[in-house]
Every structure is written in C-alpha cells, then in structure tokens.
Amino acid sequence: MAEYKLTTPLTDEDVEKLKAGDIVYLSGVMYTARDAAHKRIVDLILNGEEPPFDLKGAVIYYVGPTPPKPGEPIGSAGPTTSYRMDPYAPILIEHGLKGMIGKGKRNQAVKESCKKHKAVYFGATGGAAALIAKAIKKAEIIAYPELGPEAVRRIEVEDFPVVVINDVYGNDLYEEGRKLWEQK
C-alpha cells in the first residue's frame, strides 16, 4: 500500500497508479451528490443536456452535510452508503467521472465501469464526519437547492483523506481484506 497526494481534476495517469488499499489525500475541487441528485444528473445526460458541472476528471463525494456553524464552510460531512448511487455511476463514469467517495461495497457494473473507463472508488471513514469536514475549505450549492442537504455542492478540499477501495484493475479492498482475514 502506498500514499499519494493528488489534485483534482484527476487524469487517467492519476488513477492508473492507484491500487486498492492505497491512501490518498485529495486537494482541489470536488462535488457532493447523493441519489436524488444523481438521478437528475443522469436524466440530463440521457436527454442530451449538460450536467451542472463538468464530469471530466471530476470526483463526487456521496454526502448530505449538516448545516455549517457560523464561520464554517460546511457542517458535519460524513460519507453515505454508496450502493444507492450504483444505478447511476456507470453513466457518469462513461461521461468522464474519475472518482467517487463513499462507504460500503459497489456492484459489479460499477467495478466494470471503473476498469473500462479508468475511474476509482474511494472509501471515506464513516463516523469521522466532523474530522472530514475540516478538510473542506469552501462549499457552495451549485444545483438543486430544493434538495437541501442533498443539493449538489462544489467543495474545495485540502488533503481530504480517502482509501482506494476499487481500482482500475478490478481489485476490491473489501474482497481482498476478507480473503486475508480468512487465511489467518
């Protein structure tokens, strides 16, 4: 396992060097979106319309943050369970998405899309929402404000800590970790 510091937007070269289990500190711009926003974004794409942000090289963080305290850019911002985005992720990956951040397993279609189109799924630590929020330096709603916490936000991050769960080679940290545990 290696450690990397990467800046968004991510490139093919960035994600090709990552392997399941690697620790990555992301800096730059990311976007927040959960299932309701994902459905709307995919509907736009399927209707030949532009999504609310450029997907090329983008990273989406699956989060519905709490309201910020005065003077803070965002409230508590822990990852949400990723499988709810599985029906939409392959289309977004096909259109340039390079990274997704959440918690929990992904389905085979998402893993295959990551391999085919060179994207990665990162895990963020559940239960560390307040700590994760400290890596978010700026946040603004850019689409679907009526969704409240699930609105799409453009966030600026500095050394946002994640672990590679699914890489471009088809590796899955959850499966590999279980195999190692069963061998012991």
Rank of each mutant, 00 (worst) to 15 (best):
Y174S: 07
T125G: 01
A128K: 13
K134Y: 10
V163K: 13
L97T: 05
K116V: 02
S113T: 05
V168A: 04
P145W: 02
Y144T: 03
G127P: 08
I165F: 14
S113M: 07
V120T: 02
I93S: 02
E16P: 05
E158D: 15
A130H: 10
G177W: 11
A36N: 12
H38D: 05
T11P: 02
G123M: 03
N166V: 15
E16Y: 13
E72V: 03
R154H: 15
A77R: 09
G28H: 07
I142Q: 09
L92H: 07
A124F: 01
G48D: 01
K5P: 05
S113Y: 09
G78E: 09
G148M: 15
N171M: 07
T80M: 13
L6Q: 03
L173F: 08
K19Y: 09
F122C: 04
K56E: 15
K184R: 15
K69V: 00
E182K: 06
S113D: 07
A2H: 15
D35F: 07
I41E: 15
T11V: 04
A33N: 03
G127M: 11
G71A: 06
D86L: 03
S27T: 12
I132P: 04
T66V: 03
H38A: 01
E158I: 05
K98V: 01
A135K: 00
S27A: 08
M100W: 05
P70K: 14
H117S: 00
D159C: 02
P79M: 09
A119Y: 07
V24I: 03
L10R: 10
Y62F: 13
E146Q: 15
D43T: 00
T66E: 12
I101W: 00
P79D: 07
S27M: 08
L46F: 01
V168T: 12
G75A: 11
P161S: 03
G177R: 06
K179A: 10
L180F: 04
W181C: 10
S82P: 02
D86M: 01
F122D: 02
L55K: 08
Y88F: 10
A119F: 05
I101Y: 00
A139H: 03
V59W: 14
K134C: 04
C114M: 14
P79Q: 09
K118H: 15
I132K: 02
G104D: 02
A109N: 15
I155S: 07
E182I: 08
V63G: 00
P9G: 12
I155R: 05
D159I: 00
G99L: 03
R178I: 15
I93V: 14
D14Y: 06
D54R: 12
G127V: 05
E158T: 13
V162K: 02
P67M: 10
A89T: 13
T66Y: 08
N47E: 15
Y144K: 10
I165Q: 13
V15G: 13
G78L: 03
I165R: 12
A133I: 11
K19I: 06
V15H: 11
L10D: 10
Y83F: 06
K111P: 01
K103L: 07
G170N: 00
L46Y: 02
V157N: 04
K5Y: 15
P79Y: 06
L10P: 12
Y25V: 00
S27W: 02
K179E: 14
E175H: 01
V110C: 11
G78F: 09
E140P: 06
N47F: 06
A20L: 04
Q108N: 09
T7L: 06
